[in-house]
Nucleic acid binder design. Structure first.
Lengths: 355, 355
DNA sequence: GGAATCGATGTGAACGTTGACACTCGGAGA
DNA sequence: TCTCCGAGTGTCAACGTTCACATCGATTCC
């Protein structure tokens, strides 16, 4: 009914406590410099009025917003969503707030999103799961704001630091595992090539099969969805069965498993299947799915740490573009062997707690 | 190496274009009021300098940040993640930016998060998937900022509007479907009771089984995870089999399916199974899972629309707490019948496009 | 032809905060 | 006693923008 009251300002608090606004500011920023008695009066006034600092005014004055912008694709795919969650938590921990911007299906074009992220005055940007559609947005941003990219392979962005999970390494570990299990022919059900992660997985696959001398084949690209996995699996079944299939992610693997089951192909006896991501539920597929788990939590934390260290404590003296040491920090993914690629694996394996 | 240059301001643009800062402002806010020739000069200068408006200064001056705060649980569960994505897209569409804050596993306590969301000066708050842990944060916020809650059942928050998917209705449609299919005894594998959505589903279940006179049982609560679903399923199998099981969400249903399969219980022949959410992949479970699809996209859009309409065009004249008309806007969930509860359903059903 | 009008632009003030500096007061050292 | 110091507090200016009003030349109208 009635309009909400104006937010109280430092002046309001100061009046109530009988001090100047500067003293209020000091109580908030440097409490031990003000006499305990005064401090308590001010704190009481803050409490009574429900005062909170106006972030816009602070940002204006200090030129630092304490906001981290997160640029992501518009989807809610497992990897990006999980990473986002971890980034948010880590940023929060470090006293930063997270601003969300999307490029892609839902979200607007890269250009516009980039401009908006800039306007918002984020101190730094973290890019999650970049694909090619994001590059223009990033180029615009990089001119004035430090960027940390959470996926490798976006080489066009100058000045961007990377914190990544080594996709190729994950793919190699899958192929090695399959070879060890006796598979001689392996098919890679590849992901959308516009995604840098998909390229990394494919590259690791190619490298490993070459090195191990396996019979290899790569299908047409899927779009990460179970449906695409199923579709490609149908096509695959028209030819001779390979010993193993490595799907670009768990969802595509699920589609594949579904089709194999429907056609009476036994997994892993006739075909071994491995996915990528270790999504929630992979351990409970039929059969329980071997996959590559990515440390999304540590990834998010590392990205935030990297970004903040580049930001430096004082705005002037920092040299954000030159983040500490090497340009890329790679985290290792972890192969999780379950029933879908190993008869000796327990029928059910634990999965990590919900996150 | 060198510090990034200071962001250009309107004054910089004005100098370059040989006009006053006010003219620059007008070019941005009210272009047709400035002479075309001048306008073009200013626009050129903007382009050359890569100028973008400083949002902090705007927010300070106008007292409107054009930021929507989103409060969510710290997880990346399917429903919340999908809704978040939709909210971001809708907010972006409406010219708002999305600020993310979490309460829960990762995120900090409700109190602190609430204060931070307030400080950030969001024009309004959207709460996704509230559970009890959020209530304190919300109470603090509601004093000065309009709130739209995206889940029903958070009655403690005065002044909060709700935009929801009717969980009870979804649960009822499941029970009705099962009854029609001839099931006489139904077990509900319930979700965590601290979540308002879980309560809604359970309430709908109870109501429907009462009304239809079915044999009903409710298990101990799960935690949304497949693991919890599997654990509860193990316990369930120690007793006589019911005709059907209604799981609180698809993940728990997946755990259940896994255990049933391992024990050689045939679905749906011996036990029908229905989940809730229609997560990506549900159509490709073994068997393909009947479930209740929630219109998360429309939900996000509706929440943003509701919030913005309450915000009003001008800050003074708006009466945000009193959002238009009824307090709750319920969207209808949609029952999707697949193989797990119906022998006549096709083995594979389409699912919606990735989002 | 002079006043009223309008279109185009400039000037001043303010939003709420912080950093630099100035002031006041009591006590310590000369 | 006078100066110096520091602890505690206050005043001023500025961040970049927008709003309200002022200005100025060129019309238009009677």
């Amino acid at each position: 009914m009635t309009s909400l009251p104006r937010r109280p300002s430092m002046t309001d608090v100061a009046d109530r406590a009988g001090v100047s606004y500067q003293t209020v500011s000091r109580v908030l920023n440097d409490p031990h410099r003000v006499k305990p008695a005064t401090r308590e009066r001010v704190q009481a006034a803050i409490e009574e009025l429900g005062f909170t600092r106006n972030r816009a005014a602070r940002a204006l004055r200090t030129t630092r917003s304490r906001i981290i912008g997160v640029l992501t694709d518009g989807s809610s795919l497992y990897g990006p969503a999980t990473t986002l969650s971890a980034v948010e938590a880590a940023a929060h921990e470090a006293g930063y707030t997270t601003l969300l911007a999307s490029v892609g299906p839902h979200g607007a074009s890269g250009e516009r999103t980039g401009r908006e992220l800039l306007e918002s005055g984020a101190d730094g940007i973290i890019v999650i799961a970049p694909h090619e559609g994001m590059v223009p947005a990033l180029e615009a941003i990089a001119r004035t704001t430090p960027i940390v990219s959470v996926t490798a392979g976006a080489p066009a962005i100058p000045g961007a630091t990377m914190v990544t999970v080594d996709q190729a390494r994950g793919a190699r570990s899958v192929v090695e595992h399959l070879a060890e299990a006796g598979c001689r022919s392996v098919v890679h059900l590849q992901g959308p090539p516009s995604w840098f992660d998909a390229r990394g997985r494919r590259a690791g696959f190619v490298e490993a099969v070459d090195q191990l001398g396996l019979d290899a084949e790569i299908t047409e690209p899927g779009d990460w969805s179970p449906g695409s996995g199923a579709r490609i699996a149908e096509a695959l079944l028209r030819g001779p069965l390979p010993d193993a299939v490595f799907a670009a992610n768990d969802h595509m693997a699920l589609g594949l498993l579904h089709v194999l089951h429907a056609r009476g192909v036994r997994v892993p006896e006739q075909v071994a299947v491995v996915g990528f991501d270790d999504i929630s539920g992979a351990a409970y597929f039929t059969p329980s799915l071997s996959t590559v788990r990515q440390p999304f939590d540590r990834l998010g934390q590392a990205a935030v740490a990297r970004l903040i260290s580049g930001l430096g404590p004082a705005p002037e003296e920092a040299a954000p573009a030159a983040a500490p040491s090497g340009l890329a920090a790679d985290l290792a993914p972890e192969l999780i062997v379950r029933r879908s690629s190993s008869l000796t694996a327990p029928a059910t394996t634990d999965e990590p707690p919900v996150s």
